[in-house]
Design a protein around this nucleic acid. Sequence first.
DNA 1: TCGATTGTTCGATATTATTCGAACAATAGC
DNA 2: GCTATTGTTCGAATAATATCGAACAATCGA
Lengths: 98, 98
Amino acid sequence: MHPSPSDFRLEAVLHALSDPVRLSIIRQLAREGEATCAALDGGRPKSSMSHHFRILRESGLVKTRNEGTSHMNELRAQDLDKVFPGLLTAILNATLTV
Amino acid sequence: MHPSPSDFRLEAVLHALSDPVRLSIIRQLAREGEATCAALDGGRPKSSMSHHFRILRESGLVKTRNEGTSHMNELRAQDLDKVFPGLLTAILNATLTV
DNA sequence: TCGATTGTTCGATATTATTCGAACAATAGC
DNA sequence: GCTATTGTTCGAATAATATCGAACAATCGA
C-alpha cells in the first residue's frame, strides 16, 4: 500500500502527476503540509477521490494515516527526493508559474 | 505541431514521460544529442514510433526537423528549462539511478 | 448500541491510450 | 520518371483509466 523508496518507479510517479486532479492534490498538500481526503476533494464524489489517492499512495507520492474516522494525507517529499532528487521541487515550482 | 514554450502544459509533459518507450527515447536523446526516428525504435513498428514521437512533439519535449528522407529529433532542453526549471534534469538524473 | 461521519471497495460505463498493419506522402539517387 | 528509403496517417483491436452510485467497514459521540 505504501511502497518503500527502493520500489518507487519513475513512470508511476510521472503518471500519477499527469492527471490534473492529482496534480492539484499534490499542490495543495505542498502548501498546507497535510490534509484529509475530504479537504482535498473539490466537490468530487468520494469514490473518485479514493481512486486518485490510491494511485498517489501506490506511486509513493503520498502517505495516508488514519486519524479517527478521517484519513490524513501528507507528501512523502523526503522519500521522493532521496530516489528522484529535485523532481518534486521542479514539479511544484512549475505548477506555481502555471 | 511544435508548440511554443508558453503553450507547454505540465500535465502533457508528465504524461508524455510516463510511458516507458517515450522515456527511453528521451534518455537516448539526452545521451546522443540527436537521432533519427529509425535510430530510436527498438525494433518497434514505424507506426507505433510515429505515435510516440507525436506525443513527444506536442508536449514540447522533442523537436523534429526534416533531413532528407529521415527526420532528426532533438530534445528541447532549453525551452523546457525556461518553463519548467530543473524538471528535465531531475527526470534524466532519476533515470540514471534506475 | 445507535446514528453520523469518513473513506474504501465493488460494478458498470465511458473515455482515452497503446499497438500494429496497410496505405499514403516526401525525398534522394539513378 | 522510377525505385528505395523514411515517416506519417488511417483504421481497428486491445488495454488501461476515469468517473460515479451504491454497498460496505471503521471510528467517534451521545
